[in-house]
Design a protein around this nucleic acid. Structure first.
Lengths: 331, 331
DNA sequence: TATGATTGTGGAATCGATTCCACATTAAGT
DNA sequence: ACTTAATGTGGAATCGATTCCACAATCATA
C-alpha cells in the first residue's frame, strides 16, 4: 500500500503539500499541484482512511441499527439511507438486533467504539434505558419509526393511517370490525395504530366486542393464528365482518385463514392492513393497505443526520410522513 | 474519550503494560493486571478502533457488496453473513451497486481503501475486468452466486435446479413448456438455468418453439411483459401449456398476466420458478418453486472468509448448495 | 558464587495521515 | 526603495494504539 510519504517523494514535494492538494486546503502553486496530481493519478494512490480518521476524528461511516435484516421494509429503509449517504461519501456500518430489544443498547455502544460519525436507529420501542443511552452517546442521531423525545426522528403518522383505513372500512358499510395489533411497547405500531382504530370506531358510534381484539407479532403465521382465535372465540352471530390488521404481514396471515375457512373476500368479509411491499399486491385478493414510503423515510433520516453532522448544529428535527392509501380488492 | 495513556497513569503503569493486559500478551504481574483491569472496569474504557487498526492493519470489518438492497433475497444473505460475523466480533460495511455492474469494481476499491479485512461479493456476473480487479485486491474474498475462477465461492446448483423443476413440469404431463430467462451475462441465473431447462427438454424429446423463449429482468412487471409477449406472438394452436421462469418474481409477473387473461392455473397452464421468499407462498395459486436457502449461503460465505482470515491460508473453497423443491399449487 | 534463564516493566519507534508554525519568496502599496 | 501583505513550502508534533528492545529483578542451576 502506498503512503503519502512515498507520493511526496515521487512528486518532489513534502507530505504537507500532498495533503494540501488532496484536501484543497492552504496555498499550493499550480506547478506543485500538477506534479502531485500526476503521481496520484499514475499510482492510483488512495489515502488510508484509518490514519485520516485517527487524525481528523471523522470516519465517514454511519452506524445503522435495524430490528431485522431480510425483510423488505428494512431493506427499503436501508436503501434510502444508502442512497443519500453514498452520494456524499459516507458508508454504512450495519447491525441487526434480530428483534432483541436489549441488543439495541449493546450495538449503540459498539458503534460508538467504532467511532462512527452518527447513528440511525430504526426503533421498535421507546424504553427509558434506550433513551438514556442515546443521550449519553453524544453523537448525531436520528430515529426512524418512533418519536423519541430529544432526538431527531422520522416517523409515520400511525394514528392517522390507522384511523383513515378503519374509516374506509366503515364507509364500505362494515359495522363489526375486528382488530389485530401488536405489543404496545412498540408505541408506533402497537399503540398509535390501535388508537387510530379506536378513534374511527368511536366517531362512527360503532361498538367493539372485546373478543375481536387480539395481538400478533410481526409475521404471517401469527396473523393467521390471531384471526383463527377471533373467529373461533366468537359465536356465529357475533362474528365480525371485517378486520383491520396493524401490519401487512399480519393481514396476509389473517387472509390466509379466512380463505381456508370459506369466507368470501371481499363480498362477505373485508380486510385491510398497513404497509405495502410487493407481497400485498399479489395476494388474492390484493390487499387494501396504507403505503409507507420506506425509502423516503430512509432518505429523510440520512439527510437529517448529515445536517447535524455538517452544520454541526444541535438541531432537532421531526418529520412525520403520511401514508398513501392503496385501495385494492380486499375490502 | 479516554485513551490508553490516561488509563496507564491511573493504574500507575506504562501504556505498554495496559496494552499487554488488554491483549493478553507478554508478561504482566498479577498485581499490575489487577490494577489495570480495575481502572478499565471503572472508567468503561474501550480502545480506539482507529488507532488499533492503524497499527495492526486489522479492522474487524468485512465489506459486503450486494446488487440491490431492499429485496428479500439480499436481506437474507446479509442476515446469514451477519449471523456468523457478529458472533466473532466482525462488523459489516455494506454497499449496494443498485444493479449497475460497473459500480462493483468501484466499490471493491472503496472497500479496500477502507481497509476492510475481507470482502464478500454477491455477484451478478463474471466479467473479465471484475475478475482481474478481484485478483489484484489481494484480500480474502468470497463470491456468492457465481462461480468465479480463482476465488472461494458459494453457489447454487442452478443447472440442476432448473433441470429438476422443468422435469417436474414434464412429469405432470406438460409438453409445451415456455421459458422466461434473463441476460446471459449473469452466468448463474441467465446461462446455467437456461441450460438446465434445455437439458430437461431435450432428454424428454420435447420440442421448443423459439417464440416460447423470452427474457425479462428481475422484477415482477418484466415477467408480466415477457409472458404477454409469448402469448401474443404465438397463434392459438401453438401456445405453450406451461412456463418455467428463472426467478420467482418473474414467475409472479407471468402468473399475473395469465390470470388476468383467463387462463386457469394449474388445470390449464402450469407455472414454476426458482427462489422462495414469502411472496411465492401467498400468491394464488401458490407458486411451485425451488428454495435457495439464502441464509445458509450467507453463513457459508462468512465462514469461508473467516477461514481465510484467521488461518491465513490461501485456501480456496467452493460449495455448491442444492435447492429444495417446494411443490405448491401452480403446476 | 557466577552464570544463565525466566519474569516483569517501560522507553521509544511506528502506523499514515493532518495541521500548526516558522520561514522563504514574490507582489502590492505608499 | 521599503515596509506590508499575500503566497508557497516544509519541519515536526499529533492522533491512540502496538510492539521491539533494553534493562532490572528474581530464581534456578552448575
Amino acid at each position: 500500500m502506498l503512503t503519502i510519504k512515498e507520493i511526496a517523494e515521487m512528486a518532489k514535494v513534502s507530505r504537507t503539500t500532498v495533503s494540501r492538494v488532496l484536501n484543497e486546503s492552504g496555498y499550493v502553486s499550480e506547478e506543485a499541484r500538477k506534479r502531485v496530481l500526476e503521481v496520484v493519478e499514475k499510482t492510483g494512490y488512495v489515502p488510508s482512511q484509518q490514519a485520516q480518521s485517527l487524525r481528523t476524528k471523522k470516519t465517514k461511516v454511519i452506524g445503522v441499527v435495524i430490528p431485522k435484516l431480510g425483510t423488505e421494509t428494512a431493506g427499503r429503509i436501508v436503501y434510502g439511507i444508502n442512497d443519500v449517504l453514498s452520494e456524499r461519501g459516507y458508508q454504512i456500518l450495519l447491525t441487526s438486533t434480530n428483534l432483541q430489544t436489549q441488543k439495541e443498547i449493546d450495538y449503540l455502544r459498539l458503534l460508538k467504539s467504532r467511532q462512527v460519525d452518527g447513528i440511525i436507529l430504526i426503533a421498535t420501542n421507546t424504553n427509558e434505558e434506550l433513551i438514556t443511552e442515546i443521550k449519553q452517546l453524544h453523537l448525531p442521531f436520528v430515529a426512524i419509526g418512533q418519536d423519541i423525545p430529544g432526538v431527531s426522528s422520522v416517523t409515520y403518522d400511525d394514528f392517522l393511517a390507522a384511523k383513515s383505513i378503519t374509516q374506509l372500512l366503515i364507509q364500505r358499510g362494515r359495522k363489526s370490525i375486528a382488530f389485530i395489533g401488536v405489543d404496545e411497547a412498540d408505541q408506533a405500531v402497537g399503540l398509535m395504530r390501535k388508537q387510530g382504530y379506536m378513534d374511527a370506531i368511536e366517531e362512527a358510534n360503532l361498538t367493539i366486542c372485546s373478543e375481536w381484539m387480539t395481538k400478533a407479532n410481526f409475521d404471517i403465521p401469527s396473523g393467521y393464528k390471531a384471526m383463527a382465535k377471533i373467529m373461533n372465540q366468537t359465536s356465529e352471530s357475533r362474528r365480525p365482518d371485517a378486520v383491520f390488521c396493524v401490519t401487512e404481514r399480519i393481514a396476509i396471515g389473517a387472509m390466509q385463514f379466512l380463505k381456508e375457512h370459506g369466507y368470501q373476500i371481499p363480498s362477505q368479509f373485508s380486510i385491510a392492513g398497513i404497509g405495502a411491499s410487493d407481497i400485498s399486491k399479489y395476494v388474492e385478493p390484493a390487499l387494501t393497505t396504507m403505503d409507507y414510503e420506506n425509502e423516503v423515510a430512509g432518505k429523510e433520516a440520512a439527510k437529517f443526520l448529515l445536517d447535524q453532522l455538517e452544520k454541526n448544529e444541535n438541531i432537532q428535527k421531526k418529520v412525520i410522513l403520511n401514508g398513501r392509501l392503496i385501495e385494492r380488492n380486499s375490502i
